[in-house]
Each structure stands twice: as C-alpha cells, then as structure tokens.
Design a protein around this nucleic acid. Structure first.
Lengths: 179, 179
DNA sequence: AGGTACATGTAAGTAGTTACATGATTAC
DNA sequence: GTAATCATGTAACTACTTACATGTACCT
C-alpha cells in the first residue's frame, strides 16, 4: 500500500530514454514532462545516489562537461518496468484556485476576477507551450516512444482547452454577479 | 514566498460556512470540496489546535454528540480573507497516470490499455458524482455563496468531460497501435 | 450485545521544496 | 573578463499520509 517513490520512477524513466547526468535529468523532466511532472535537484541527486547504491543505475564516465553520466543497468531496466506496472493510486486532489474560488464570497467579486484572469494568463501560456511542442513533434522522425508521448501531449491539450473554456465562462459569470 | 499552509485556509473556510467539530470539518471537506480538495485528520486536528492557540477559532461548547464545536473569531474571519487574497502559487504538476503513459513503451500496449481503462472507470464515477451534486443544487435555495460553489462545480464538469474525451481517444489510439 | 457513526488525537514515516554553497566550462 | 550554463550536493523546513490508539452515542 505504501506509495512508491514516484521520483525514482521518473528518474529511471528519464534514463531509459538515454544515459545522462543528474542535471540533464532535471532538464529533461522540466522540458519534456513539464506539463504534467516536476522534480527538484533536492530530489534528483539523492534519488540517483540511492539508485546507484542499489545497482539500478551506474556511472558510465564523465560527459562533455564535467558531470557523471548515469545509465540504467539491466536490473534498473527491470525495476522500471516493475514500478510502471504497479497499480497506481491517484494523488488526492488539491486545487488552490478552486479552494479560493469556493470561498469567493469572502474574497469579493473583483478579487475573484483577478484570480481567474491570472489563471487565464497562465493557461494561455501553457497552451502556447503545448502548441510549440506539438508543432515540433510534426517534424521529428517517429520513434517507438512517440505514440505514447503524443498521448500525453494530447492530454495536456484537452485539459488546457477545458480550463480555458471554464475560465472564460466563469469570468463572464462573475461579471454578471458584479453588476 | 513561503507557501502558506493551505490546510489552515481550508479549515478556516469550512468554519466560515458554519461552526462545527473537527470531525465535521473533515466530512464537509470530503463531501463538498471532494472533487478538488482533501484533508486528513492528521492535518485537521493539529491545525485546529494551532488556530485556537492563535485566537483565530474558539470552542463554542459541545455539539449534539460529544465533540467540541469550533467557530471563527473576528480575527479568524480577517485572517481567512487575508489568506484568500494572497497571491497563490499553483502546485507543481504531478500526474502519475501521464508519467506512466509517457514511458508506455516499457510497459507494453496491453498494460497501458488497462491503466487507461481503470482511469476511465474512475473518471466516470467522478462524473456521476458531479452530476448528483449538480442535480441537488437545482433544488436548493440560492445562497450568496451558491454562485461560487457552482463555478467550482462547473470546473469539475469541464475537467471530467475533457478527461473522458482524452481517455476514449487514447484507448482507441492504443488499439490501433496494438494491431 | 453488536455495529455504525461520531469524535479526538499522536507518532512514524514519506515526500517534497527552497535556499544555500560550490565549482567547472563555454560563449561572447 | 564576465556572464550564462552546466554540474553537484546538503540542510532546514513544510506538508502530508497512514496507522495506531481510544472512547462515546445511538440504533437495532
């Protein structure tokens, strides 16, 4: 029942694409999984150390600059598959925007409007980012991983479209309330 | 920059609707904010003790059964408004389903299909739950809070519709891959 | 008498962020 | 030479979950 460390899963997964340094793992996660995942250095380096101690990753030498390049070992490969296959428990929901909006009467119409407008800006930025990823993917050579990557991209697109529609609807509702 | 305790915000918010016991706070959060928020007893009781020590809530005696009923003090009311107004930093995204799907090639088409099918069941259950809340709200007397509550409900509806559409699309994509 | 819902709290453990500290390499 | 990027790591802190422990009140 113990929730498995998702950080290990993310790090092993990143190294399954190609060997890299801890720094590059962080960059890969930010750039490629950014719309649905995040890791901080404070998690990645201890995780790499732990994975190395357990023989799931090994140093393959030093990269172009000065860092240690880590690669999956066969045992790490197996562990990754095992972690991926484990029944996964969705994280309890925690949406700070909706929490604030729910108590919106205490906050006032104007402040709620600002809250939603800021969220609208953030969501538009996210949508533009996804559009960029989408157009880049069009020019890439298809890899065996690509179908899965495109599904996660599509998830982001669906979610941001829905968020935009909701935000526009709700801002309009607030305007009607404020009159 | 220090992220404000969201638990305090949720507890103060719950008590702003009406005074109640810690147990009832938990029930209110589960029942009413369930689709976008959650709190465990391990958070609520310490939070209530802290809020009481700071004079933001006070015991108003004993309820129908045996517990202590907490109510907002005027200072708690002000603090709630202050917390609501604070610029809010969205939590870093962490979607375990998409993380697994991204590395779906390691997992195999069949296991991915199961993953998505389970998610589909969960999402359908959530959609049914929201539908129930929606139909109940139709028969309620409108309160000044209701417009805000309906906005959070609508957020859930938009999000689950988008999730359902994405899941159906992705399961179909996996079927095409598997052939 | 037995079960269910109400009620409160603690302890151990997990997960994660942020800030700090340090230094190498590359590009301009 | 200096700024940006690459690189590694630790320490302090915050947040949160789960499991445990305990008891009351009501209904049948």
């Amino acid at each position: 029942m113990a929730r498995v460390s998702q950080t290990r899963l993310a790090v092993l997964g990143a190294l399954s694409v190609r060997p890299m340094t801890g720094y590059a793992v962080r960059a890969a996660i930010t750039d490629t999984l950014g719309h649905f995942w995040s890791e901080s250095f404070g998690q990645i380096y201890p995780a790499l150390a732990g994975l190395e101690a357990e023989g799931l990753v090994r140093r393959t030498g030093v990269g172009a600059t000065s860092g240690a390049v880590f690669a999956l070992t066969p045992s790490g490969q197996r562990t990754l598959r095992g972690l991926l296959a484990e029944p996964f428990v969705p994280a309890p929901p925690r949406n700070g925007l909706l929490l604030r909006l729910f108590f919106g009467r205490q906050l006032g119409v104007e402040a709620c409007r600002e809250l939603l407008t800021e969220a609208l800006n953030r969501t538009r930025t996210a949508a533009a980012q996804l559009e960029r990823v989408r157009s880049e993917s069009t020019y890439e050579d298809p890899t065996p991983d690509q179908p899965y990557w495109l599904m996660t991209l599509s998830a982001g697109e669906h979610a941001t479209r829905a968020q935009l529609a909701w935000l526009e609807e709700s801002i309009a509702a607030l305007d009607a309330l404020g009159e």
